Lab assay of single mutants.
Amino acid sequence: SPISQSQFIPLGEILCLAISAMNSARKPVTQEALMEHLTTCFPGVPTPSQEILRHTLNTLVRERKIYPTPDGYFIVTP
């Protein structure tokens, strides 16, 4: 029987999409709110552990794709 394939999207890209959507909705993007958003909006995607989430967010900050503030994470705009 054929095996169904799913699209692979890197966690960093999913986080950027989620942060962008939450920023547009003016929702604060904390790590907890981000986990909740991922569970709700990406039900088929396994939720990352806190450690993996933190590591991926730090990587995105180093890559200058997002930036942290006391009010949460935001997408870097050119």
Rank of each mutant, 00 (worst) to 15 (best):
S1C: 04
S1W: 00
P2Y: 15
P2H: 14
I3R: 11
I3Y: 04
I3N: 04
I3C: 04
I3A: 08
S4M: 12
S4K: 05
S4H: 13
Q5R: 08
Q5Y: 09
Q5C: 11
Q5N: 02
Q5V: 09
Q5L: 07
Q5E: 11
S6D: 14
S6G: 10
S6M: 06
S6P: 08
S6C: 02
S6W: 03
Q7T: 11
Q7D: 10
Q7C: 05
F8G: 06
F8D: 11
F8A: 09
F8E: 11
F8S: 13
I9W: 12
I9N: 15
I9Q: 15
I9K: 14
I9S: 15
I9F: 13
I9D: 10
I9A: 12
I9E: 15
P10S: 08
P10W: 15
P10V: 15
P10T: 11
P10K: 13
P10R: 15
L11K: 01
L11C: 01
L11H: 09
L11Q: 02
L11S: 02
L11G: 02
L11T: 02
G12V: 01
E13F: 02
E13P: 08
E13Q: 13
E13A: 12
E13G: 12
E13M: 04
I14C: 06
I14R: 08
L15W: 00
L15V: 14
L15H: 00
C16H: 08
C16R: 08
C16F: 08
C16A: 04
C16E: 05
C16W: 09
L17I: 15
L17R: 14
L17W: 05
L17A: 12
L17D: 08
A18V: 04
A18P: 00
A18L: 01
A18C: 12
I19T: 03
I19Q: 00
I19A: 02
I19V: 05
S20V: 04
S20H: 03
A21G: 08
A21P: 00
A21W: 03
A21F: 03
A21N: 15
M22W: 02
M22E: 01
M22R: 04
M22S: 02
M22H: 03
M22V: 02
N23Q: 06
N23C: 03
N23P: 01
N23T: 05
N23K: 01
N23I: 02
N23H: 06
S24H: 05
S24F: 04
S24T: 15
S24W: 03
S24I: 13
S24C: 07
S24E: 13
S24M: 05
A25K: 12
A25E: 09
A25W: 04
R26G: 12
R26L: 08
R26F: 07
K27Y: 05
K27M: 06
K27F: 04
K27P: 01
P28Y: 10
P28D: 15
P28H: 11
P28R: 09
P28T: 13
P28W: 03
P28L: 04
P28V: 08
V29K: 00
V29M: 02
V29F: 03
V29W: 02
V29P: 04
V29A: 10
Q31K: 05
Q31M: 09
Q31N: 12
Q31E: 13
Q31A: 09
E32M: 07
E32D: 07
E32Y: 06
E32V: 08
E32F: 04
A33H: 13
A33R: 09
A33D: 05
A33E: 08
A33W: 02
L34C: 09
L34K: 00
L34A: 01
L34M: 03
M35G: 09
M35K: 02
M35S: 12
M35N: 03
M35D: 04
E36Q: 14
E36K: 12
E36V: 06
E36L: 08
E36D: 11
H37L: 01
H37S: 03
H37R: 05
H37T: 02
H37F: 02
H37C: 03
H37V: 01
L38I: 07
L38H: 02
L38N: 00
L38V: 08
L38Y: 02
T39D: 15
T39M: 06
T39P: 08
T39G: 13
T39Q: 11
T40K: 10
T40G: 09
T40W: 03
T40L: 08
T40N: 05
C41Q: 02
C41F: 13
C41Y: 08
F42E: 15
F42V: 09
P43G: 06
P43A: 05
P43M: 03
P43V: 08
P43F: 04
P43D: 06
P43W: 03
P43Q: 09
P43T: 10
P43H: 12
G44A: 09
G44L: 07
G44R: 15
G44S: 13
G44P: 08
V45Y: 14
P46T: 10
P46V: 07
P46I: 13
T47A: 07
T47S: 07
T47G: 04
T47H: 04
T47E: 04
P48E: 01
P48L: 03
P48V: 03
P48S: 01
P48R: 01
S49G: 08
S49F: 00
S49C: 08
Q50S: 10
Q50F: 13
Q50T: 07
Q50M: 14
Q50P: 09
Q50R: 10
E51N: 02
E51A: 07
E51V: 05
E51S: 10
I52P: 01
I52M: 15
I52D: 09
I52S: 05
I52E: 10
I52R: 07
I52V: 14
I52W: 11
L53S: 01
L53P: 00
L53D: 00
L53C: 06
L53G: 00
R54W: 02
R54V: 11
R54P: 02
R54H: 02
R54L: 12
R54T: 03
H55Y: 04
H55T: 15
T56V: 10
T56M: 15
T56W: 11
T56Y: 03
L57K: 00
L57A: 01
L57G: 00
L57M: 08
N58I: 10
N58E: 12
T59D: 11
T59W: 15
T59H: 14
T59Q: 10
T59K: 09
T59S: 15
L60K: 01
L60E: 00
L60N: 00
L60D: 00
L60W: 01
L60P: 00
L60S: 00
V61Q: 11
V61A: 14
V61G: 03
V61E: 10
V61F: 04
R62L: 10
R62K: 06
R62M: 14
R62T: 14
E63F: 04
E63T: 09
E63K: 13
E63I: 03
E63M: 09
R64I: 01
R64Q: 09
R64M: 05
R64W: 03
R64C: 05
R64L: 06
R64S: 11
K65F: 07
K65S: 07
I66T: 02
I66N: 00
I66S: 00
I66R: 00
I66V: 10
I66F: 00
Y67W: 09
Y67A: 14
Y67D: 15
Y67E: 13
Y67N: 08
P68K: 07
P68W: 09
P68V: 15
P68D: 10
T69A: 11
T69Y: 02
T69S: 13
P70R: 14
P70G: 11
D71S: 09
D71G: 13
D71P: 03
G72N: 04
G72E: 08
G72T: 05
G72D: 10
Y73R: 09
Y73T: 04
Y73H: 11
Y73A: 07
Y73P: 05
Y73I: 03
F74M: 15
F74S: 15
F74E: 12
F74L: 09
I75C: 13
I75Y: 11
I75Q: 11
I75W: 09
I75V: 13
I75S: 14
I75A: 10
V76H: 06
V76L: 14
V76K: 14
V76E: 14
V76A: 12
V76F: 11
T77P: 12
T77W: 06
T77G: 09
T77L: 08
T77N: 15
P78K: 07
P78N: 03
P78G: 03
P78Y: 07
P78A: 09
P78V: 04
